[in-house]
Simulated scan of single mutants.
Amino acid sequence: MSLSGLYAQIQQSEWVDIPEGWLQGRTIYGGLVAAMLMQKAIAVVADNNKGLLSASVTFVGPVQLGRARLSAEVLRAGKSVTTLEVRLWQDDAVQTILLASFGTQRDSAIQVNQERAAPDYPAAGELQIAQHHPLAPECFKQMQMVWAEGKYPCSASAQPDFGGWFRFEPKLHDNRDMTAADLMAAFDMWPPGVLPMYKTIAPASSLTWNVTMVHPLRSKLQDWFKYKVFTDYAGHGYSTEYAHLWDAEGRLIAISRQVVTVFA
């Protein structure tokens, strides 16, 4: 099932069949889960004039391949901003929660342009697309990823963090206008910033994920994006990091902050 087919199912029914090809170990890749919740939120808001402002995802428990139920509650629908909560259920238990705010652009006398500039990487076509390692999660096949700085995961690096280019795999995803749900599916594909420090393959998973939108999306699904992650702190089995996402024109699209559980 394509992402478009999955989104159509979410539009039409409370129940959804999670498609194959998105496993991250024995569970479903968190970015796809977040995308499903975001698509449900978009369907409930049902207002093209209200774009995504911010979203917070809590990964309560592992989501398995199979059927899931999505429920949504509008917490407040104001003139400018609508805030709602969406939950994913499996086996009568909540596994993931999304809290999202959508809003219209408003006139304001306040204008600040201090967003972080996009890194000056070589063009994606000049670098090597990372090959899918046999032991890497299945979901990585959904994307093309190009490291432009930093080390690969599990390379025993003395330092964390990396950056590069990425996009949806053109062989698997038809080109169309990108949505906020697509952004969630793509943005979380990069591994945690501490993974280059791993000496052997071991798990790491997002616990909480906050995304703030900056400039509106105006990209196609197969367009390249730039990504860079920075780890603030890691210890006692957890790390906290933030990341920036730019489009191919160097516009800052979104900022992410995550708390990650570390099993190494």
Rank of each mutant, 00 (worst) to 15 (best):
D47Y: 09
R251P: 02
D182V: 03
Q222N: 06
T104E: 12
P153C: 05
A72R: 00
M197C: 15
E20P: 00
G193L: 05
Q159W: 11
T200F: 15
M213S: 00
A248C: 07
D17P: 02
T83N: 11
E241A: 12
D161R: 01
A68T: 05
R67C: 10
G78I: 01
D188L: 13
V16M: 11
F59V: 01
L88Y: 10
M197L: 12
A8K: 03
N113D: 11
L70A: 13
E14I: 04
M143D: 00
V45I: 08
L65T: 02
S108V: 01
S80M: 07
W147L: 15
L172T: 02
V262A: 12
Q39K: 04
Y121T: 05
P134C: 12
R87W: 12
A117H: 03
A109E: 00
L252R: 05
N175S: 14
G31E: 07
R257M: 11
Q114K: 08
L88R: 03
A148M: 14
S80W: 02
K141T: 09
D92V: 06
N113T: 04
T58E: 12
M38T: 07
L217E: 04
D120P: 10
G235R: 01
T179L: 15
E149K: 05
A72G: 08
S54P: 02
L207P: 01
S13C: 11
P62T: 01
W89N: 03
E126C: 11
T208A: 09
A8F: 11
A156Y: 05
G78T: 03
W22E: 04
F59N: 00
A124D: 08
V16H: 06
E85F: 11
G21N: 05
A180R: 04
Q64N: 11
G125A: 12
S219Y: 08
Y152H: 10
A204T: 05
I110C: 06
V229C: 13
V146N: 08
S205H: 02
I253W: 09
F263Q: 09
Q128G: 07
A123G: 10
L98Y: 14
G125P: 10
L135D: 12
A156I: 04
L135Y: 08
L75H: 01
R87Q: 13
Q95W: 00
P216D: 10
F263L: 13
Q159Y: 14
L32G: 08
N49E: 15
T212V: 10
P137R: 02
Y242P: 01
D174L: 06
M36V: 00
P122W: 15
N175R: 04
L252M: 03
W89L: 13
F168R: 00
A117Q: 06
A234M: 15
Q144R: 08
Q64G: 01
A100T: 01
L172P: 01
V94E: 15
A117E: 03
I10E: 09
H173Y: 08
